[in-house]
Amino acid sequence: MAAEKALALVVRGTDWSETSRITTLFTREFGKVRALAKGGRRLKSNFDVAFDLLTVCHIVFLRKAHGGLDLLTEAQMAERFPALRHDLHALYAGYYVAELLADGTQDYDPHPPLFDAAVATLRGFTIPASRPSPPSPPEGASPEPAGRSLAHPFPGNAGGVSLPPTLDSVTAFELVWLKELGYSPRLDVCTGCGARVLPPGAVRVLFSPSAGGVLCSVCGPGVSDRRALSAAGLTALRGLTAPGEQPPPDLSPVRGELRALLGQLVSFVLGRRPRLLGYVEGR
């Protein structure tokens, strides 16, 4: 067994026996690694406090030759993200990043740009200056008693009326995740016939997750999971995916549309709807 060193993000963890812990780590060097940290639950151990979820840590581990869990021998915390402890939007977005890394990547399949994008996304969340005020009830609704409802404990997520700006970071991360997994959507020409999809004057195109991108008006109607994508949404998506193009400074006009589209695309690639998607979008 060779000892390996890596920089890792903790994406899942479960207690094992009274003192040990099984941890899933997304490492920059090796991709996803599942390892046993013997004594990892003890207050004094070789693992510092490194195994808290969404903590970046330097690890040393023994790689098992024939599958099974690797064995962690050392871990030291490198970075934590304070905003996750102060803002529920950021926390859920962080959990969502963890879910995509843990369930949407293979063991020992390294993707350094994906690791960097995950850390940059988490680093980008900032602690709100003050706790936001409760949302005002919709017109005609009876005033809610003191305290918030269980379904919507923070403002800005009720019914998806006002999606939080945190989602733009999530959107950017999803696009990196899709690109690294080889599912980056094709947005320039029709995925069916290669024709130009947005002729001058057109206000919307068709998009299909199973087709892997946009479709022309001839190919589109034959695809069952097609959905409409506005010209503004397509431009924004192109800006976010193409390195040469600049994304629009404010995604708010197309935020809802992009969320719906990417939610469908990520669910298609993952083979199921991500557990955290509803939390992230407040639905």
Partner: peptide, 20 residues
Amino acid sequence: PTLEGDGTALFAANLLEGTG
């Protein structure tokens, strides 16, 4: 005092906001 514990506390604090 873990991320999940802190998240639970944050959620509860948000629910209790406005109760005084």
